[in-house]
Nucleic acid binder design. Sequence first.
DNA 1: TATTGATACCTTGTATCGCAAGGTACTAAA
DNA 2: TTTAGTACCTTGCGATACAAGGTATCAATA
Lengths: 110, 110
Amino acid sequence: MNENNIDNIKSQMRKGVLEYCILSVLDKNDAYASELISKLKDARIIVVEGTLYPLLTRQKNQGMLTYRWEESTQGPPRKYYSLTNKGRDVLREMDKAWKEIVETIDILRK
Amino acid sequence: MNENNIDNIKSQMRKGVLEYCILSVLDKNDAYASELISKLKDARIIVVEGTLYPLLTRQKNQGMLTYRWEESTQGPPRKYYSLTNKGRDVLREMDKAWKEIVETIDILRK
DNA sequence: TATTGATACCTTGTATCGCAAGGTACTAAA
DNA sequence: TTTAGTACCTTGCGATACAAGGTATCAATA
């Protein structure tokens, strides 16, 4: 059992909850993509740009997110994403779905 | 917010933990594929044959599972899968990984 | 004994999704 | 004017789940 395997298992498990994590972070504060990446990294959820950008675009196209451009004093302008009402609805559904799964696993592992 | 969306969210979340669920069920009792499907269905984890069969083969090829054939009184013979020692090791790693993710989500949603 | 229904196995083609790698553009400092 | 830092985005690949379809065995029944 090497670290590669463990990392792979974790990575597999994280997949299903990535969207949930992103909406959760944005529920607290608006954020731009690079900021999201570092916040999720702090929470031990590794996301890379090639994953995040398409995902944010998807969520925006589905009406969960909007964005606005803001100038930065330290580089190019930033695209700040924020939750829409629909995004908040989806987030609540995700809360329910997540609780269900956690309960299910609890029972399976009992 | 229609049911389709909700189902999709749940389906996404389940994806990452399917392997974990299968090993968890087999940790209690050996089982054959159709049996696994109905046990997981009872636990509200929907898996279809086209998903399960390749997955079991993968897990077997990775040394987590073995199988034996057993005659059935009610149809064709059954392929009973059981955990190997390696499978039990992986399952323990999955337990750890799962706990980590649950904690992470807890913190993100606080 | 031929057929049907139930059970159980498995494969193929498609779509989705995350990741690795590479690319563009703006700003400030050297 | 070149370099470093920040921030955006795209393309190609591999893995995986699902839908749909296929094969094989057994028991009951017509």
